[in-house]
């Protein structure tokens, strides 16, 4: 991110800058009973998540499995029922939309999934697959739709003859291009990329990332970019939220997050992803947490990260820290944020 963009983040954005405003989003799933007559347990997949996405920017969500990043994406896309909270998209709370109203609103927000093969109907040709959203939303005349398909294929870097081929005739990278063309078809404002490059080989991953960047530049697209790969997130995102067990634990412009991370969980993630060398060894020794993330079923009170946090104190186990501003534009949910400060993450490299 450029310095100008970084400074822009420090000012409260004008309302029209905000394309998506998620307020206190909660998604719980039922998880059976504890014992035959016990209370019903709940998976707290997303537990009070708030964030804003500025138009034309990329908002990254990182975290390990079970952190709720994909559930957040699916809730924003209205693909799963929301337990509580608002999802204000371009001024409308789409969490309240139902039926036809929701169906028509969908043309403005689209999603690209991790596995492009299972996202495409194997019995339909590429052209029909890309045209499908236009058909379903009744956009344009049949001739216009046909022309638009050709244009979309070209935009995502597929040859025109691709239209008559079936998904299995494409490579993984080409299939992901098809999925992107499909998502682009109704000219959305927002595209959610849920681990959209994670299953691809590194060379292909770079091609798809560059394609997404170019489309963003040309069309002013806004992205929510979900990934577990911090290097990719740093490269691709303007703002980043770090999620852990259904909560955002830290959120900041990418430049601020990676130059001076503040939450112990972010330290651990960064230590695990640091480039090889002496720095990585030091970070891993000091900050990498042990064990696996605990289950999001009925999480304990207090900080969700307390169980694994090397800096835990009693208060962390009792009291849930709220996500609060630590410096301009940098939000952290940790009781000890002031005390722990921002440790040295790479000076002297």
């Amino acid at each position: 991110m450029s310095n100008g963009a970084f400074e822009a983040m420090q000012r409260p954005p004008a309302p029209s800058d905000i394309l998506l405003d998620v307020n206190d989003l909660v998604v719980h799933f039922p998880a059976g009973r504890r014992g035959l007559f016990g209370a019903r347990s709940k998976v707290h997949a997303v537990d009070g998540v708030s964030f804003r996405v500025r138009r034309g920017t990329t908002f990254g969500i990182v975290g390990e499995s079970g952190s709720g990043k994909s559930t957040t994406a699916q809730a924003v896309m209205q693909l799963i029922p929301v337990t509580a909270g608002q999802i204000i998209f371009d001024g409308d709370n789409i969490a309240e939309f139902r039926g036809e109203q929701l169906r028509l609103a969908r043309r403005k927000f689209q999603i690209v999934f991790q596995d492009p093969f299972s996202a495409l109907d194997p019995r339909r040709r590429a052209g029909a697959l890309v045209r499908e959203p236009l058909d379903l939303l009744g956009i344009g005349s049949p001739e216009q739709r046909e022309a638009r398909v050709g244009q979309l294929l070209e935009e995502v870097g597929l040859p025109p003859q691709a239209a008559s081929q079936f998904p299995h005739q494409f490579s993984g990278g080409q299939r992901q291009r098809l999925c992107i063309a499909r998502a682009m078809a109704p000219e959305p404002d927002l595209i959610v990329c849920d681990e959209a490059v994670s299953a691809l080989d590194v060379a292909i991953q770079a091609q798809i990332l560059n394609l997404l960047k170019r489309l963003q530049r040309e069309r002013g697209l806004t992205y929510i970019f979900i990934s577990h790969d911090l290097g990719v997130v740093q490269h691709f995102c303007d703002d980043v939220a770090v999620m852990y067990l259904g909560k955002i634990v830290e959120q900041a412009p990418a430049a601020a997050l990676f130059s001076a991370p503040r939450h112990p969980y972010s330290w651990s993630l960064i230590a695990a992803a640091a480039p090889p060398g002496a720095l990585r060894e030091r970070l891993k020794k000091n900050y990498l947490v042990k064990g696996d993330p605990p289950s999001p079923v009925d999480p304990p009170p207090g900080c969700r990260f307390a169980q694994r946090c090397p800096f835990v104190i009693d208060r962390c186990r009792r009291e849930l820290p709220i996500l609060a501003v630590s410096n301009a534009g940098h939000l952290v949910a940790c009781h000890r944020v002031d005390e722990l400060g921002a440790p040295d993450f790479g000076a002297g490299m």
């Binding site: 590194v202 060379a203 991953q205 770079a206 990332l209 911090l230 290097g231 990719v232 740093q234 490269h235 691709f236 990418a254 430049a255 997050l257 990676f258 130059s259 960064i270 992803a273 640091a274 480039p275 720095l279 040295d344 993450f345 790479g346 000076a347 490299m349």
Partner: peptide, 11 residues
């Protein structure tokens, strides 16, 4: 083609 994580001032 692999974006390497940059830390500290480089970030």
């Amino acid at each position: 083609c692999v974006p390497q994580l940059k830390l500290g001032p480089a970030a």
